[in-house]
Design a protein around this nucleic acid. Structure first.
Length: 456
RNA sequence: GCACCGGUGCCCGAGUGGACCAAGGGAACGGCCUGCAAAGCCGUAAAGCCGCGGGUUCAAAUCCCGCCCGGUGCUCCA
């Protein structure tokens, strides 16, 4: 049984779906005002892995992740570029999805946009106003935090504590009765996109969209709500307040992933000078990034940089090398080794222990290699099947059969020439050819069944 | 200042009371294999105890207290 750390309590709790056999998952997607960065990649990977795992355990999962396509940053950037908000948002939404595709992210079942949910948001705000949970001023509609019992539960702080921090740093808006109150609806300013509402022309506040979309698509009391750690407060706190303020149950479980830390100095000065996800994916195998994320627990802050990506790439090569070896072997069909599968499941059930799960995979790789050496085909086949099934669950596709593509006849000729020289025991010539190939970035691997090559 | 998450070997990074685990990956070194390599397999003495100092316990990297350091958050306009 899967146990997950619930951000609301901080405890690991058993995941018990609202509807037996099903799971409803919502996580906060990007605000599309710029190209995605490494943090988007980490977070999206984390929930991709969660959803894949839930599905593998047999649950019928409905996964929803939103696109925030109206917000202050979008308005500002559109103005800067002299374009419209919808154009800008759509453009960066496309970029986001394209980059996530490169990462091998399974698309969420539904990807709603905020601007398509304004009516539903207005409806929720109306309920809050009717229930006296919100009040209206000239600048908009605000949520009255005092009216909700337990505001601050996600943040782990009392309203008093939160107020203390707020007062110390930020000028209090005159219109708000309490510095903790937050905007549900913002009155229109000249030149900004606006929608009609009972409170005049304006646009929705930041948090309300996720409430409208998650409740509409997944229903009250859906299973899991997630996002990056930085969204816990105020975003998720306020979402929760909005939903509870309507007298409706919100997410049953909160899951948050840790932040990505980039050693900015190192990063900007060294060779691999990447800042956006696109830059990174241009220089590294996207699967290396996924593997790196897998080898770190999802809640922990992690560093993504040249050094960690280099080791992840080496580890990935070990897996790919194994896949190639299997592709070159003629193993019988087999079910996945049950012991490996069981240990994998135990690891994942414990708060998505992907690092421990990968350890199971690497153990299986070693055991399979050993079985292959011992010509124990039955064991090798079962272990190999486990490796492929389990990496598949984690969204890692191992590149096996594509070790030598016939896209470069020159290389094939050189390899053949070397084999001829070797057969004639002309090792000087064979080594000369191999050095030549090495210089071209080609790695030669001899085996009992012949010589294969691949690009380094 | 407040809250939360962290500080583990050469590096990354699992592990939250004990029993064949301080996992796994990377790097390094030695061996087997190889014409030599690569890949694969086997092994590696000093992780002497898991940021520091106390404490609880028969037993702690794992629990408690204090401290130091890092990250994140602390309302619309960020």
């Amino acid at each position: 049984m899967l146990r997950l750390t619930d951000s609301l309590t901080g405890d690991k709790v058993e995941f018990t779906p609202r509807d037996p056999g099903k799971a409803s998952v919502y996580w906060c997607g990007p605000t599309v005002y710029d190209a995605p960065h490494l943090g988007h990649a980490r977070s999206t990977l984390a929930f991709d892995i969660l959803v894949r795992y839930l599905r593998w355990t047999g649950l019928d999962v409905t996964a929803v992740s939103n696109i925030t396509d109206i917000d202050d940053k979008i308005i500002a950037r559109a103005a800067d570029e002299g374009t419209t908000e919808p154009e800008l948002a759509r453009r960066f939404e496309d970029v986001f999805i394209a980059e996530m595709d490169r990462l091998g992210i399974a698309h969420p079942d539904l990807r709603p946009r905020a601007t398509e949910y304004v009516d539903q948001m207005i409806s929720i705000i109306s309920q809050l106003v009717d229930r006296n949970m919100a009040y209206t001023t000239d600048s908009g509609v605000y949520y009255d935090v005092d009216r909700l019992d337990g505001y601050g539960a996600l943040a782990g702080q009392s309203p008093e504590q939160l107020r203390e921090g707020a007062g110390a740093r930020v000028e209090v808006d005159d219109d708000k009765a309490d510095p903790l109150d937050f905007a549900l609806w913002k009155a229109a300013k000249p030149g900004e996109p606006a929608w009609d509402s009972p409170w005049g022309s304006g646009r929705p506040g930041w948090h309300i969209e996720c409430v409208a979309m998650s409740l509409d698509l997944l229903g009250d009391g859906f299973d899991i709500h997630g996002g990056g750690d930085d969204l816990v407060f105020p975003h998720h706190e306020n979402e929760r307040a909005e939903c509870l303020g309507c007298g409706r149950p919100f997410a049953r479980l909160w899951v948050h992933n840790g932040m990505v830390q980039v050693g900015t100095e190192k990063m900007s000065k060294s060779l691999g000078n990447f800042r956006t996800l696109a830059d990174l994916l241009d220089s590294w195998d996207p699967r290396a990034l996924r593997l790196l994320v897998l080898q770190t627990h999802y809640r922990k802050t992690m560093e993504i940089g040249e050094a960690t990506l280099t080791t992840a790439t080496a580890a990935l090569e070990r897996l790919d090398g194994f896949a190639r070896r299997i592709a070159g072997s003629d193993l019988p069909d087999s079910a996945a080794d049950p012991d490996a599968v069981g240990r994998f499941r135990t690891a994942m059930d414990d708060d998505l222990g992907t690092a421990a799960a990968m350890a199971v995979v690497f153990d299986a790789v070693r055991d399979a290699n050993r079985a292959l050496d011992a010509e124990d085909e039955t064991s090798a086949a079962a272990l190999a099947a486990a490796v492929f099934e389990l990496t598949g669950v984690l969204g890692l596709r191992l590149g096996g059969a594509t070790s030598r593509r016939g896209d470069d006849g020159t290389i094939d000729e050189l390899v053949a020439a070397r084999s001829t020289a070797k057969a004639a025991k002309d090792y000087a010539e064979a080594d000369r050819i191999r050095d030549d190939l090495t210089a071209r970035g080609i790695v030669i691997e001899d085996s009992a069944t012949g010589t294969t090559w691949r690009r380094n």
